[in-house]
Computed example of a mutant assay.
Amino acid sequence: MSTPRPALLVLEDGRVFHGDAYGAEGQTFGEAVFNTGMTGYQETLTDPSYHRQIVVMTAPHVGNTGMNDEDPESRRIWVAGYVVRDPARRASNWRSLRSLDDELREQGVVGISGIDTRALTRHLRERGAMRAAISSTETDPQALLGRVRASAEMAGADLAAAVTTEQAYVVPARGTKRFTVAAVDLGIKTMTPHRMAERGIEVHVLPATASLADLQAVGDDGPDGLFFSNGPGDPAATTGQVELLQAALAEGIPYFGICFGNQLFGRALGFGTYKLKYGHRGINQPVMDRTTGKVEVTAHNHGFAVDAPLDGPTSTPYGEASVSHVCLNDDVVEGLELREAGGRLKAFSVQYHPEAAAGPHDAAYLFDRFVDLMAAQKEGQA
């Protein structure tokens, strides 16, 4: 077994970690964030919301089940870099086709192993997510630090165009088709349209640049509902999709948004957004659904949040908006809903991932809530 090449991880505040090259050798830059999931690394790596981020795994042992062709959440690995403490020496799983190390190398993902990820995670919790670099070609930490501080920040970044589909496509309904939904791909995960298809929804996935005309062209008489997906970047840097959503709300099209779709829904309703200190990333986050009082354990991947009041509804041009879900760890807004004056639900969104790939299935009911919303709209039009 060959001796691994040394590698450096340098944070923008000057903290340096020394380890071994893992995956592809080279140099990479991105925002350093940590993920607390104990499993699901393949889904994490292929989640487009991690575009331009260096992901630190808090679980110490990573890669033991290898990589397969069934679990990816998109067409490629999106993380800018990967940080693990103790990579598996051998992949062992009946579905495994190749090792994680080989897959990272094949896709050109630069990583580092053998560092104290616990110390790194504690540092990011105390100081906040920050720019960083991994390099197995640069041996001078100060030289690498200068490049880190000259690299792009996540705040102000509009990244949906970099991860969206180039062409529209359709995910057919399973069984009897009940509804047609236009899904704007801002970095969509494969499991999301799959969860809708399971409920009889034909999903037309549209590029992030979709116009109102593109939306109205979906289905025979326009879509029964509109969906905005998860995705990377700063919601405050996004304008086109906010305007599209406002136009759809004005027309009364039922809406459901996830993650980035929640942030853009907030902006469409007139709320602001802000960057969290270190974000929520993992599959063990407790959230309360304020409409039912139930507490769910949920999967998260977000570094920005909506700034909306928790203590009552807000009047908007489209109806009464209120916070429907809240994180029990820190009171961050985790969901919004929009109702008519009479109380009927018009649109809703959540900041977390009810498709749960990977993660618990506590929040799967939200797809049923979307079905009920579209059914109520159809009944009202009958």
Rank of each mutant, 00 (worst) to 15 (best):
T3L: 15
L9Q: 04
L11G: 10
D13K: 11
G14H: 13
R15G: 08
V16G: 09
F17N: 03
H18R: 15
G26S: 13
A32V: 07
V33D: 03
G37D: 04
G40K: 14
E43Y: 05
L45V: 01
H61I: 09
G66I: 07
N68A: 10
R75Y: 09
V79D: 06
Y82H: 14
S92C: 07
D101H: 15
E103K: 10
E103W: 13
G108D: 06
I115T: 10
D116Q: 05
D116P: 12
T117D: 12
R118D: 12
A129C: 01
A133Y: 02
A133F: 11
A133D: 02
P141R: 12
G146F: 00
M154W: 13
A162L: 14
F179C: 06
F179I: 07
T180L: 10
V184L: 13
I188M: 14
M191Y: 04
H194I: 09
A197T: 00
L212S: 05
D214G: 05
D214K: 10
D221K: 11
D224W: 09
T239F: 04
L245K: 01
A250C: 08
E251D: 11
G257R: 03
G257S: 08
I258W: 03
C259V: 00
C259D: 01
C259F: 11
A268N: 05
L269H: 05
F271Q: 07
L276Q: 00
D289W: 00
G293W: 03
G293S: 01
T298K: 04
A299L: 07
H300Y: 02
H300F: 05
P309L: 11
G312V: 11
G312H: 04
A321P: 03
S322Y: 07
D331W: 07
E337S: 04
L338T: 01
A341Y: 07
H353T: 00
F367A: 14
D368T: 06
V371Y: 08
A375H: 06
Q381S: 14
Q381G: 11
A382M: 13
